[in-house]
């Protein structure tokens, strides 16, 4: 059981680390927008490239934080009934949901996403507007990385829930789960 708990914490911690770093994309995004807005009037810096960069940062930001948000209990739930369930019932729901819904979702996206990125890599795909950023496969990889961290967080939730069902001290409610793990 300690093994389950440790595994769970390691998986969750890795998803969290990736998210914590990717979170800074928002600062880069704001600066990119400001740069484009300010310079546009005076010099031709290549707005298309900057505007491509904007959505590249946006994509990285949300994809790489999907797992982080799950670990932190930030994905919204309809908790009208949920709040009345006991710890074990909640753990059972988490186990079933993660195993039946979330893991297959990640696997489908990863399986087809891999082909998607590989295709882009083989073509060395660039921006369709020609004046935009080249090497699309780099940004497309964010899809695969993002869903991998989501998968890790799902596996973390599964092992955590198993531990709870087997009698480990139940982790707190989702929104304070991170305080429990103490990372």
């Amino acid at each position: 059981m300690t093994f389950l708990l440790v595994t769970s914490n390691v998986l969750k911690a890795s998803a969290r680390r990736v998210g914590e770093v990717a979170a800074w994309c928002v600062v880069a995004l704001i600066l990119t927008v400001m740069l484009d807005v300010i310079t546009r009037r005076f010099i031709v810096l290549g707005s298309t490239k900057l505007q491509d960069l904007e959505w590249h940062l946006h994509a990285t930001l949300f994809l790489l934080c999907l797992g982080y948000a799950y670990v932190e209990g930030e994905h919204v739930r309809i908790d009208v009934l949920h709040s009345r369930f006991g710890a074990k019932a909640a753990a059972a729901i988490e186990l079933i949901g993660a195993a039946l819904f979330l893991v297959p979702f990640c696997i489908v996206v990863l399986y087809y996403g891999w082909g998607f990125v590989a295709h882009s890599f083989r073509l060395d795909e660039g921006s369709p507007s020609l004046t935009g950023l080249p090497h699309r496969w780099i940004i497309k990889s964010a899809l695969v990385i993002g869903f991998t961290t989501l998968l890790l967080s799902a596996l973390g939730a599964i092992t955590g829930a198993l531990a709870t069902l087997l009698g480990a001290r139940p982790p707190g409610r989702h929104h304070d789960a991170h305080q429990e793990v103490g990372l």
């Binding site: 919204v76 739930r77 309809i78 009208v80 949920h82 949901g97 819904f101 979330l102 297959p104 979702f105």
Partner: peptide, 18 residues
Amino acid sequence: VLFSGFPVAFCLAGVGLV
């Protein structure tokens, strides 16, 4: 499924896949 309290985002995806 939504009323189970599992995250909305993943309920949508899961029911779609099922």
